[in-house]
Amino acid sequence: MERNLTHIALFAALIAVLGLIPKIDLAAGVPITAQSLGIMLCGTVLGAKRGALAVLLFLALVAAGLPLLSGGRGGIGVFAGPSVGFLIGFPVAAFVTGWLMERTSLSPMVAATAASVIGGIGVLYVFGIIGMSVMLDKTLGEAAFLSAAFLPGDAVKAVIAGLVTQSLSRMRPASLLSRA
């Protein structure tokens, strides 16, 4: 139990640290950040349940007012902006990414990259596009078009998640809780 709590807190902190990388603002008001890499790693390393719990802890800290999102944003107000769909989708994306990791016997690199693409990009974009559509008063097609700007960077993050997961698997196989 203590070990699980430590892992959950550690990965919540990882997501926060990835928010220190300067954000790049897009015209839609949703920034490009490195934090989605943390969401992917929560799933690929911790697995479905622990990964989602780490993200929920991170979001609770953000809602409590800690400036943990990129650009030093925090507080309940961030859940009323154009990125609300992505924030709501974070724990679901981590869960799906972890769930996929837990159920495949592919190599950690291939499994983590594929799970990150499906969960960390596909699932997250469903929530993000809906959130942008509602908050920006755009059609789903217009919001999807705006979200396309994130795809190249997110594809790179999925590969990085695969590489990090593969490295952890080789160096410390027991640390890959999604495969335990």
Results as ranks from 00 to 15, higher is better:
M171T: 14
A180W: 00
D25R: 10
V96L: 15
S70M: 12
F58K: 05
L20T: 02
F150I: 07
K157H: 06
L136A: 14
S178D: 10
V62N: 14
M101Q: 04
T113K: 03
T33G: 13
A12I: 04
P22V: 15
G72N: 01
I118W: 09
D154R: 05
M1F: 13
L53R: 00
A28K: 01
L106E: 04
A115H: 08
L68N: 07
G89V: 06
A144W: 07
A158T: 08
I24D: 04
P22G: 15
I76K: 05
V92L: 15
S133D: 08
V134L: 13
L140P: 05
S167C: 04
K23V: 14
I15H: 03
S147L: 13
F79Y: 10
A93Y: 08
L57E: 01
V164D: 12
V164L: 15
F11M: 06
M40N: 11
L41M: 12
G43I: 13
A148F: 13
L57C: 11
V78Q: 02
G81C: 07
P108M: 10
A80G: 00
G128L: 12
A143H: 02
G71L: 10
V30K: 02
G19W: 01
A93N: 00
S175Y: 03
A64K: 04
A16Q: 04
A174V: 02
L146R: 03
T113V: 08
G65M: 13
S36G: 14
I88K: 10
A180N: 09
L66T: 03
A180V: 14
S147E: 00
I118R: 03
M171I: 05
A60D: 02
T33C: 12
L61Y: 03
M132E: 08
A52V: 15
A161C: 10
A143W: 02
W99H: 06
S83H: 02
M109N: 05
R3E: 08
V96W: 01
G128E: 08
V92C: 13
V117D: 01
L177T: 08
P152E: 04
M1S: 09
S133V: 09
T113A: 08
T139H: 07
N4L: 02
L61C: 12
A148S: 14
R179C: 09
V164C: 13
T104I: 15
M135G: 07
